[in-house]
Design a protein around this nucleic acid. Structure first.
Length: 378
DNA sequence: AAAATGATCAACCGCCCTTAG
DNA sequence: TCTAAGGGCGGTTGATCATTT
């Protein structure tokens, strides 16, 4: 290919963004929404290439971006997700709402990798929220509830893009009963040909849960090319601080019964509280060992008839049967372990052995990171 | 106090995939 | 079917700030 990136044109600015540039970009996005990045340059006179605009928006200006130190639980989840997905930072970021792939990638290389080498992180900052270039914090509301966390949580985000594409995200938090600190944070996942959606709500739940987080992402792209993405990560922690997208209309409850609600804008967000002992147990009681079963249970789109793992990529099957771009090939350690009875392609094969994966993730074997880094274990 | 060194992270680069013409 | 443009993503760089000497 060797195609030009579009950022190599003369006359375009490079380097750090100025507050004026940020404002120009935000003003444009408020009116036109995301996408058509290259139009921004033409229509606003902003001397930045479309890619640079997108990057700035995605990593910095977008509502809901969280800054500051990663919690232990976030780190734990990152490590476990990395076990599962490798360097697929965008997928990992998808399980950590408010965190960008870039941020997680940086964190991995600067902190987690360092730990693997036996060096602790130097805490250089307690970052205040918001852009250093002056962008306002997107957080609008925050509330705190006390909860025994007896509910399992299913968060589903549906976003219509360009009328024909829809994304669905489903996250399930399955609480148990030890100490933790869960944060649920809401945002709207971007406008559709309309105004920029701001952060809608943030709810902090001080609860007594151990989290087992099962995150499932179902992506439906284009009604004519229905792809599905289903990925799961199990995070176990004793002090969790995780965030989930929630709609504005969300109401907190500490009871074991929950609710479902929809969002605003042309995208619809919905959060459903599943009764932990009833609805969620149905999932658990089912043949939970197959992703395909999970998907059947929590399918969110009646039009979807095609479940393709990881990133909705039907294309490019490699010689080992894994798909070319988004296929996850599990670590050799996993494949060799007694825990595992699935195949190498894992997520690309929605029928792989889920329980084996969980068993592997729960193991204390951290050699994977040493393998990845060529260094000592954590 | 100044220089050297290390750490962090925003931004860029280039590859790949998708889509439109 | 081919080509080019747009967009997404992971790897890398370099500016900036903190810490150490």
């Amino acid at each position: 290919m060797g195609r030009k990136t579009g950022c190599s044109k003369d006359g375009l600015n490079k380097g750090a963004w100025t507050p004026v540039e940020d404002k120009m970009l935000l003003d444009y996005l408020k009116i036109h929404g995301e996408g058509k990045w290259s139009n921004i340059v033409r229509e606003t006179g902003l001397k930045r290439c479309g890619k640079s605009c997108r990057l700035r928006w995605m990593n910095y200006l977008r509502p809901g971006i969280r800054r500051g130190n990663f919690s232990d639980d976030e780190e734990d989840l990152i490590i476990r997700m990395h076990k599962l997905l490798g360097n697929r930072w965008s997928l990992i970021a998808g399980r950590l709402p408010g965190r960008t792939d870039n941020e997680i990638k940086n964190y991995w290389h600067t902190t987690i990798a360092k730990k693997a080498r036996g060096k602790p992180k130097v805490d250089r900052k307690q970052i205040a929220p918001g852009s250093p270039s002056g962008a306002a914090s997107s957080l609008k509301n925050q509330s705190t509830v006390e909860s025994q966390c007896t509910t399992g949580v299913v968060a589903a985000t549906t976003t219509s893009q360009e009328n024909s594409a829809q994304d669905h995200q489903i996250s399930i938090a399955m609480p148990q009963f030890t100490t933790s600190n869960l944060q649920y944070e809401s945002s709207s996942k971007g406008p559709q040909n309309g105004a920029v959606s701001n952060f809608k709500n943030q709810i902090t739940v001080e609860s007594q849960c151990t989290t087992a987080v099962i995150a499932a992402t179902s992506t439906l792209q284009e009604s004519t090319a229905q792809d599905h993405q289903v990925s799961f990560a199990m995070a176990q922690s004793t002090n969790s601080n995780l965030q989930y997208d929630m709609p504005k209309t969300y109401e907190t409850e500490s009871s074991s019964k929950g609710l479902a609600s929809g969002g605003e804008d042309s995208s619809s967000n919905s959060m459903m509280y599943y009764d932990y002992m009833e609805d969620f147990s149905k999932i658990l009681d089912s043949d939970f060992t197959k992703f395909s079963d999970i998907h059947d249970i929590i399918s969110t789109d009646p039009h979807s008839n095609n479940t393709d793992a990881v990133n909705g990529d039907h294309h490019g099957v490699s010689s080992d049967g894994c798909k070319s771009r988004e296929t996850t090939e599990f670590p050799e350690k996993l494949l060799e372990s007694d825990h595992w009875s699935g195949n190498k392609c894992g997520l690309a094969d929605q029928g792989f052995d889920f329980m084996s994966l969980l068993s592997f993730l729960d193991s204390t074997d951290n050699e994977w990171i040493a393998d990845a880094l060529g260094t000592n274990v954590l």
